[in-house]
Amino acid sequence: MAKAKITFEDINQTVNVPAGTRVIEVSEKVGAGLIYGCREGDCGTCMMEVTEGWNNLTEPSVLEEKVLKENMAGRHNRLACQAQILGDCKVKPA
């Protein structure tokens, strides 16, 4: 299975994960500072900044785009509960 490395910059921790893993599945287990509210892409609590490898996450869905807009997201912000890891990337809390 294809692997990808995600680095949580706030705790300087890198995890080698199967491609397709959602960020939420990893970040809590390593104690990264990303925090979650609804866990289903509605509340915007888990907004993160992708500092490297923006294109190595799945494209945001229409719903995620809408929530990002409502929460005045920056250009490289994503919801950690929605984004799936496809290739190497680095993230931190927004």
Partner: peptide, 19 residues
């Protein structure tokens, strides 16, 4: 230590190890 120095990662770890 995690409190005063959150930036203390331990290299690369495997997803299966944290499951």
């Amino acid at each position: 230590h995690a409190l005063i120095n959150p930036n203390q990662g331990s290299g690369v770890i495997e997803f299966s190890d944290i499951h």
